[in-house]
């Protein structure tokens, strides 16, 4: 009998552990949702360096060219206050499959091309190649 009650005790602990993880996850989700804000700028970072910055209110289509010989492309589209990647020639296509982003801190990452597209609250003061 002792063995059996130990088993039940373990089962109960397993459930508590899973419940705690899920509660933390839900709490984290609610916290992130409660603190999210609409962004006003879309920033493009290539290999960690900020290269382009656009207002999220404009409608643009921009080819982001990277790679040593300019062989990598990601097409950034900003439309109706949302940014997304329309096409890309990276092998995984995760950036293209990513949903549109519009809240501060949201990003679309193209790992193979080292491109990060991020929504920001304010334009940074760094010297950019192109400020539109």
């Amino acid at each position: 009998m002792k063995n059996n009650s130990e088993k039940n005790q373990r089962k109960r602990n397993d459930i508590i552990l899973a419940a705690v993880i899920l509660i933390i996850a839900v709490a984290g989700f609610l916290f992130l949702n409660a603190t999210k804000k609409n962004g006003s700028y879309v920033v493009v970072k290539i290999d960690g360096v900020e290269k382009y910055s656009y207002s999220i209110t404009e409608n643009i289509t921009k080819e982001i060219i990277t790679g040593e010989n300019g062989e990598y492309t990601n097409t950034l589209v900003i439309k109706d206050g949302k940014a997304s990647v329309l096409t890309a020639n990276c092998p995984d296509g995760i950036c293209v499959g990513h949903r549109e982003i519009s809240f501060v801190g949201e990003t679309i990452v193209c790992l193979p091309h080292k491109v990060v597209i991020e929504v920001k609250k304010e334009a940074s003061n760094q010297n950019l190649d192109a400020v539109v």
Binding site: A18, I21, L22, I24, V26, G28, L32, T107, V109, V116
Partner: peptide
């Protein structure tokens, strides 16, 4: 690698799917 709050959302999703996978 990437400083962004969105990673927080990833963790939320991964915590749930990780728990299911763990079972």
């Amino acid at each position: 690698l990437f400083e962004t709050v969105q990673i927080g959302y990833y963790m939320v999703v991964l915590a749930v799917t990780g728990t299911i996978a763990g079972v």
